[in-house]
Design a protein around this nucleic acid. Structure first.
Lengths: 349, 349
DNA sequence: TTGTAAGCGTTATCAC
DNA sequence: GTGATAACGCTTACAA
């Protein structure tokens, strides 16, 4: 194991002191051009690499941020992380990844681990699984920037970057209404999470605004899986009044639903329209592309990173910033009735 | 900004010294049960959190590992990272993410940044973009565990976890032959990368082993995109001898190819079979599910993490370990001729 | 069992 | 312009 090269090694080599080496390396004005040059040369000769740990300990700034997501291997979250990394790496920050697996206990564990690691801030998609906010308070008390993305909680002093789920759901539902669908069901996910509650409410509002009624038995909750879509459709098909469209809060549920509808011999979009949410890549890859609402995960990540940078660079002034991005509806074949297909051009991403 | 709690604060509170506090907190035997209990109580009372940076600086061990991938927002890489994180977090390690965007310069930049950050090891998918290995040598010289996954280079002392791309390609091609395809083309990606070279060679070997010839003009190289698949098909359809199947080294290219084939009115799988590589989620979501080779990214990540742990826990003995995972072919509709469909059951994940 | 002091690699504050 | 020294928070010989 080769000895680690420190500024002392450079100092010894040049018979000067570590302080001077430090000054030379940091473009401190209090150093002669000659020694600066000499130091820089020997530094690269010895292949010196500054120890960020020492710097971090000294300065109290680690240049690391923690990012907490339910799981990293989903298109949405990995894209958000990409946005964050794209924005933060050029600023000298490193991104430490933590997953909660949708578990409140894990969230607490992760936050503690990140605080121990002395991160300069935490960007997270809030699980909302725990009823109390103690673990978040630890962050806030330390005056560390805390930024929620996608899933937030309304906590004083905590910034957030979300999309307008309500509007996304409203637009999606409205498009179904405009297609002539009369009985629009909603496939929802756990509505204790704000995002799903908002999508539900956007759906409701769209119906009411267009003189339609909200039917309790048209609201089916399931997991965000293909299986969830399948069982939801089975439930809907047992009703006296069978719906002729669904707005699903999840693309996976929408896909599961489409499969089950096809299995039952129901024609999409002719007899039944389907719209999902998230604009997962596969929605556009299908032979029957699925209408969906894009959440701009990359932009969300970038924006969250920018909000973090703003806060970290203005430590003294406590700013809470709540950015709400606009979603975009991609109208595709699964919700475009043949009769309308020429009047309204399908929107492909 | 509240003052940070250190062991000195605990020491002062109990009128003992920091050394004793440290001992108490670390289950050091050289401490009385009474003071230990007292220390632990005040620690949690004051909400003390150990500073990992200080520990890292002292011990020379940061408990961070760096993971370098071309980009994080792809199903394959995000799944590998998940595997790594799943395995490493319980062992107290944090994962720092870096992206190369397939740029050699970025790879060097990332490695330097990670070395500065004093990571305990680096797990990376090697870009192979740079001709020299200087930046890798910095890692090796420091005796830091370096583990390649998926994309590797053969470098003395560097471990790797890959799948057997050759076998995956061989099996995929063989399945096409067994379906009765006579003229099998290959859509390849940059073969200066070992994985694509291996897939190409597996394809070749399968043809030769079954008495078929390798035709130069049946090998089309493109980017790993839908567009790449489209243009590749266009080229193939201009040949005197038009192929009746393709084995694509990329699922995206396979999908692009399928779309273009359909656009030209060619029936899949009846007239033309298509097989991809990676088992991207969408391949199984399609109405016409695409046959593909699973690379087990989660397992790959876990294995890479295990190899890292082995090495980091055996610093003295230098072990190079090259793990090769077996891929698995998922035979789906895109390569199952109707005449054979009852004889061989399709394999759905 | 506990206290003392050095050291991990830097930088900042003094002197000179 | 340069050198000496303390400090960041922690662990660990070595003393006591």
């Amino acid at each position: 194991m080769p000895k680690k090269i420190t500024i002392y090694d450079i100092a010894k080599e040049l018979k000067i002191t570590a302080a001077s080496v430090s000054r030379a390396l940091n473009n401190n004005p209090k150093i002669s051009a000659k020694t600066r040059k000499l130091v820089q040369e020997t530094a690269s000769k010895l292949n010196y690499k500054p120890n960020r740990l020492a710097l971090a300990l000294k300065s109290g700034k680690s240049n690391n941020v923690g990012v907490i997501v339910p799981k990293i291997n989903s298109n949405f979250f990995s894209s958000v992380i990409r946005g964050i990394e794209d924005e933060l790496f050029p600023q000298g920050y490193h991104v430490i990844i933590c997953q909660t697996y949708e578990l409140g206990t894990r969230e607490i564990e992760n936050i503690n681990a990140l605080l121990n690691a002395q991160v300069d801030g935490i960007l997270m998609s809030y699980s909302g699984a725990t009823s109390n906010h103690d673990h978040l308070n630890f962050i806030i008390e330390k005056n560390l920037p805390l930024i929620f993305f996608d899933r937030k909680a309304d906590i004083e002093g905590v910034s957030s970057v979300t999309i307008n789920d309500f509007v996304g759901a409203y637009e999606a539902t409205k498009q179904l209404i405009q297609q002539g669908c009369k009985h629009i069901a909603h496939l929802t996910i756990d509505r204790s999470l704000e995002i799903y509650k908002d999508r539900f409410e956007g759906y409701q509002k769209a119906l009411l605004d267009h003189g339609m009624q909200v039917q309790e038995d048209f609201i089916i909750e399931s997991e965000s899986t293909l299986e969830g879509g399948k069982t939801s459709i089975q439930k809907l098909l047992e009703l006296k009044q069978i719906p002729d469209a669904i707005f699903s809060a999840s693309d996976f549920v929408a896909l599961g639903a489409i499969r089950e509808l096809k299995a039952k011999g129901i024609k999409i979009p002719d007899e039944f329209c389907v719209t999902g949410f998230s604009n997962e890549p596969f929605t556009n890859f299908m032979e029957l592309p699925i209408t969906s609402v894009d959440q701009f995960p990359l932009e969300m990540g970038k924006m969250a990173a920018k909000v973090f940078l703003e806060q970290v660079n203005n430590k003294e002034t406590k700013i809470e910033k709540n950015v709400v991005l606009n979603p975009k509806l991609y109208v595709r074949k699964s919700s475009t009735k043949p009769s309308n297909s020429k009047s309204k051009k399908t929107n492909n991403k």
